[in-house]
Write a protein that binds this DNA or RNA. Structure first.
Lengths: 194, 194
DNA sequence: TACGAATCGACTAAATTAATCAAATAGTCA
DNA sequence: TGACTATTTGATTAATTTAGTCGATTCGTA
């Protein structure tokens, strides 16, 4: 019964993901989620307390998958320079694939909603930590020349955010990899100990 | 002033088309249309009397374009057999390209709304007339073997509608041309005078 | 049968939204 | 300029929509 319930929840999350990704948080109604899951609206509330909760679960699952993908990719690499490179590239490519989802969120220009911001900030902090760890490793290995890893990691993550915008807005996803490589060159030229 | 106003209307129609095509009629709000056109919501009402009116204008424009495309394609062809073939193929391919628009409409399962049905029926009648004319031509040329062109044209249009559904629902657009050809074979084997 | 798990319909309070209107602003031409 | 029209807008409202609740019903199963 416990397992069964979790299965049902997972199914709701997955179906809701599809709807949220197309219509965004605000425009997605509980009734649609219910209808798509072939349940009554009230049944959904048996599994989740609110629309927000479903949305959080969806985003968390999304984040989990991204996280996992990143960890898998990085687990192979030891050298901090390569690690940072892989991290950024994989991250950007994943984002590229998830563009639909994120652009749907943007289309609620309700994005300012507290809890969305909160989720976002949490995830940003996690990213900063990951990058920071890579930087520290690089400093220890004497490969990086960074005096304030924390501040630097914030700068790098911020730079990545900056690259997200043209990625989400434009459809010039083709030049993207090229642009990322450029940025990496620039970044390393300043960071790597010569 | 008159021209200027029409330009503004045309611009609103075009921008609204984009929003409708993504969110469907119901989920699209006047405020969004206004925001996207960089106008106040009330300004939109200066150009259109209602949301319905905007939607009608959008659909009409869409239909006009399809019509024009069909006429262009058919103007080249004289033989009724070829004409019918071209008509069906072009029509289905156009529909394929416009799938986004139509599938957004489906996602309002408010599609039942009277006026959407009405628009649809009007357009269906027009299609029946076109096909009917082609059939009559074919009968006169002694190429077709059809005793009731009107009824037959309804049958053919209905068959095309039948093909629309898998086209809209599935994403197997690849097999589509193949399927259309099959249908045409079947159709002609029964229709063409041997 | 009994008992908890799951579903559902009916309902409400709150939020959203289409449409209106009167007032403000921009544009034009004599 | 000033008078007149075209356009835009903010405030408002009436109607609709929707998130969330609750009590009742059905399902599964032991």
């Amino acid at each position: 019964m416990l397992v069964h319930k979790d299965e049902a929840k997972a199914r709701i999350i997955e179906i809701a993901r599809g709807i949220f990704s197309h219509f965004g948080f605000k425009k997605t109604t509980m009734e649609e989620i219910a209808f798509a899951t072939r349940k009554g609206k009230s049944s959904i509330y048996y599994y989740f307390n609110s629309k927000e909760d479903i949305f959080k679960a969806v985003v968390e699952k999304e984040a989990d998958e991204l996280r996992e993908h990143l960890q898998n990719s990085m687990s192979m690499v030891l050298d901090p320079i390569e690690k940072l490179k892989v991290y950024i590239i994989v991250r950007m490519n994943q984002l590229k694939e998830r563009t639909n989802f994120y652009s749907a969120l943007k289309s609620d220009y309700l994005s300012h909603l507290e809890f969305i911001e909160k989720i976002r900030k949490n995830y940003d902090q996690e990213e900063v930590r990951i990058v920071e760890n890579i930087l520290r490793e690089g400093v220890e290995n004497n490969e990086f020349n960074v005096d304030d890893p924390h501040l630097s990691s914030i700068a790098i993550v911020t730079a990545m955010k900056g690259l997200e915008i043209p990625l989400l807005l434009d459809d010039e996803k083709k030049n993207m990899n090229h642009r990322i490589e450029k940025m990496l060159d620039f970044l390393f030229y300043g960071i790597v100990r010569r």
